[in-house]
């Protein structure tokens, strides 16, 4: 009896494909479970962002003028470029899913790699945008010190000075630099120890991080050429109200109460402009975190493609990660017009 059972179990395991977990009866059941699971997860993601969308809607409804004045600081061309990059990455991952269904592992690997590079380019451009704003004191509400002049903090780090970039961009690039060096080292090490699979994988990761620098450099050149981007010029040309309103915190507190009513209203407006950027940083920051998580998930797919795991009856993970990636993309499709294209 015991013997019969154990052989039966053995048999069962053998019948199960390489990647079918023991508690599923068929590959279809496993695939359906995974697919339903990822869809539910995406629903939770949408709800997670929904809080921010509600906050955005309420603020915009109550203070439309803040949104109109503040959004000019966002460079719509950089935003549009990032939109194109993300849309393209959605195309490549969708194509990758198709290739996985056909069992073309090499194609999946290449397409996933392109997707990851696009994701990294996106982050690189975002780093330029963020550092540019931080330089001008365009921060969240409590730290908002923008003085309306478009004046930048001087770079103080020697490396920032010699490259002609802002300190913030250097700080933001520290982690990518460490990763770049680390991955390059890992890749060489793996090749030298005769593990070409891992060698290839880490080489792919080096290329991915390269995407970050590509995005950052391109964004930086754009900023230099256009003298601070559309935001910068626009503000300098038409920003009279902002210049008037903008003041450092001490000035606001020192304000005495005899001033005309409309002056106080303007002051209030000025202080609250920071709220737009609070929402901007929360939304784009949370989105950026999702992009980075996406890169991690994609790298897992990348590795498994190199290892030839996908077959016509087993490609679920590519599909799941692809769906996640489309959602991250979709959220950006909403964020871009809501934040950058207000008028």
């Amino acid at each position: 009896m015991a013997l019969a059972e154990s052989t039966q179990e053995h048999h069962e395991h053998h019948e199960h494909g390489e990647f079918i977990a023991h508690h599923f009866d068929t590959p279809e059941q496993q695939f359906d479970s995974g697919k339903l699971g990822i869809w539910i997860f995406l629903v939770t993601e949408v709800l997670f962002f929904s809080g921010l969308f509600v906050a955005y809607t309420l603020w915009r409804y109550h203070h439309p003028q803040i949104f109109e004045q503040a959004h000019v600081h966002l460079d719509k061309y950089l935003g549009a470029a990032n939109t194109v990059v993300l849309l393209f990455s959605s195309l490549t991952i969708a194509w990758g899913v198709r290739c996985a269904q056909l069992g073309k592992n090499q194609a999946v690997a290449i397409l996933t790699l392109i997707t990851m590079v696009c994701a990294a380019i996106f982050i690189g451009v975002k780093a330029v945008e963020y550092s540019h704003k931080w330089d001008m004191g365009i921060l969240v509400r409590s730290a908002f010190t923008y003085d309306g002049s478009g004046h930048h903090h001087e770079a103080t780090l020697p490396i920032a000075k010699s490259l002609g970039v802002s300190d913030w961009l250097i700080w933001l690039s520290i982690v990518p630099t460490i990763l770049l060096v680390g991955f390059a080292f890992l890749s060489t090490f793996m090749y030298l120890t005769q593990k070409p699979l891992w060698g290839k994988f880490w080489a792919g990761m080096v290329v991915t991080i390269g995407g970050y620098f590509l995005g950052a450099i391109a964004g930086h050149i754009y900023m230099k050429v256009t003298d601070g981007g559309v935001g910068g010029k626009h503000v300098r040309a038409h920003s009279e109200p902002l210049v008037l309103l903008a003041a450092s915190d001490e000035q606001k507190h020192g304000d005495d109460h005899d001033h005309a009513q409309d002056h106080t209203a303007k002051q209030k407006l000025d202080r609250d402009i920071g709220i737009f950027f609070s929402i901007y940083y929360c939304m784009t920051g949370l989105h950026a975190i999702h992009i980075i998580a996406g890169i991690v998930a994609l790298s897992w797919i990348f590795y498994r493609s190199l290892a030839n795991h996908w077959r016509p009856d087993y490609f679920g993970p590519v599909d799941y990660v692809g769906l996640y990636w489309h959602l991250v993309d979709l959220i950006w499709i909403y964020l871009f017009p809501m934040l950058y294209l207000i008028d």
Binding site: L58, W59, V140, R141, I275, S278, C282
Partner: peptide
């Protein structure tokens, strides 16, 4: 960070 969304002192709700 003081984003001001909930803080009435900063115009939050």
């Amino acid at each position: 960070m003081g984003i001001g969304i909930f803080d009435p002192d900063m115009g939050g709700d």
